[in-house]
Design a binder for these strands. Structure first.
Lengths: 303, 303
DNA sequence: CTGAAAGCGCTAACAC
DNA sequence: GTGTTAGCGCTTTCAG
């Protein structure tokens, strides 16, 4: 292991600040020569300890192999690399306990910052408060922290507006109606329609898929159809996975999408693109554009 | 920042090896008491520098938001966390240059090990050889390194066998026929059939999708159908994304899958599950099982 | 069993 | 401009 000292000796200089401004060109050359000659590489650990900065950020997500999140991970890694940071990827598995452990470990590792999808906006709070590291929340808003998230309420409204513009009269919703962000989306959607004298015809209540394996949506849509029948020209699905599953169910029930039934998703994830080939879900596309343009929010914790 | 020294002072002891076996119970208690009292947490950076071990592993993939890889990432993170390791996620974007940079950075960070999908089994070699860190390759085999990968040749054979068992006579292939792993799969497939007096009827040559956005498969399948027509009862697609796109194209051309045309994918990724609801692609399922059971190889570099 | 001290390789602050 | 030194907070080794 060749250290700074080694190259200092060789170069006959004692100070080796390859990047410090105040060094004579000649000296720098000599240093650089030996750096190359001895194949010197800085030890980032030593640098971190002495410099009190690791150039590492921690990234917490509820799940990695879920398009919505993996796309976020990819973007963050990309920018981080560009800025000279490494990112430690952590999967909370939606467990408060695991989240707490991860945060402790990240703190001990002295990461420079944390980007997180908190497990719960309320109950995760203490863990993030203990963290002595700058943190920004994504996906959800958390009090006291800078947050980047989508306004689901607004998104819901805009899709409602879009549906009305398309001339739809019979409109439905598929997804959770009471869960945090879904509830907001549902509220925005429903209230906008209601302000225009339209009541939701079908509300197919089903839980948000937590991962790509275990989704009840498909089953519940079929069940709803069997029990109550489908009466709508257009449905808003809580998220893209829900939309995919609903479309699948509709197909099997003999409906064409979007000719017979229009479906709007939410998330703008790559899943759309896969499905789009199969069935040009123009409403899906539209909703994506809407969401992209106007509902992303950045809320700074600093006043 | 409370350090070991602080708690040593408080506890009236000088040595604080909380985990070393040879400490009197009483002493340990005293130490533990102050650890809690002062809310002491070890500084992992200092530990890394002195202990010469970081408990970090680097993970290199060509792309993060691609189901096949994001699932691998998730599994690795999972096990790593369990074993007390953190994982730094790195995206090579299939660039030799970027891969080289990443490897240099990882080396300087003194990661304990590296798991990588090498950009190229040949041309990446020097970069990995320079790396002074244990590395294991996944997905592809690389000379001189421990590798975990699928035998594509074997997989191709087994799907061929399966197709024959199903009684198919007219069989086709969709994917690259010359690219490294695909070529092997194609060879295994084709040679097995040929040993059974069956010649491939349709070979729809198309590049492997590099990401979920830019795939030509859909277009090329349609084009092939328009130019030459589709003549097969069953097709093997190079990978799951290719399979998805082909299925989409088949649908639009008026074929039912798997009633009219059977399609086998490769990868066993979650994409199958999404699509399975829509069209029970039993052959896809079968091929997955086949791949899982018998074609995974572990090759150790140490003799 | 426990104390003391010498590094790990670098940064930062202060001299010349 | 350049040299020197004192840490960063821990592990390890060697005494006691």
């Amino acid at each position: 292991m060749v250290s700074m000292q080694d190259i200092a000796n060789k170069a006959g200089v004692s100070r080796v600040l390859s990047n410090h401004p105040s060094v004579k060109a000649e000296t720098r050359q000599k240093v650089l020569y030996w750096v190359k000659e001895l194949d010197y590489e800085p030890n980032l650990i030593a640098q971190s300890l002495a410099g009190n900065r690791t150039n590492i950020i921690g990234l917490l997500v509820p799940e990695i192999a879920y398009p919505f999140f993996s796309e976020i991970i990819e973007s963050i890694e990309n920018q981080a690399f560009y800025e000279g940071y490494s990112v430690i990827i952590c999967n909370t598995h939606r467990s408060l306990d695991k989240e707490k452990n991860i945060l402790a470990q990240l703190r001990q590792r002295k990461v420079d910052g944390v980007i997180a999808v908190p497990v719960s906006t309320k109950r995760s709070l203490p863990s993030y408060q203990r963290l002595q590291v700058p943190a920004v929340m994504i996906t959800k808003r958390m009090d006291g922290f800078s947050s980047v998230y989508i306004s689901h309420y607004n998104g819901g409204q805009q899709i409602a507006k879009h549906f009305l513009n398309m001339g739809f009269q019979k409109i439905g919703y598929i997804g959770p109606t009471r869960e945090s962000t879904s509830a907001l989306k549902y509220a925005g959607f429903q209230q906008y329609l209601s302000a225009n004298q339209i009541k939701l015809t079908d509300v197919i209540e089903c839980p948000a898929p937590e991962n790509m394996n275990a989704s009840l949506v498909y089953k519940l849509v079929k069940q709803y159809a069997a029990n109550s029948g489908l009466h709508c020209e257009a449905y808003l699905a809580n998220d893209d996975i829900t939309a995919c599953e609903a479309i699948t169910a509709f197909h099997e029930l003999g409906y064409a999408v979007p000719q017979d039934i229009a479906v709007a998703g939410f998330d703008n994830s790559l899943l759309d693109q896969i499905n789009n080939n199969a069935d040009p879900c123009i409403y899906e596309l539209e909703s994506r554009v809407i969401a992209r343009e106007s509902t992303i929010r950045f809320v700074s914790a600093q006043p």
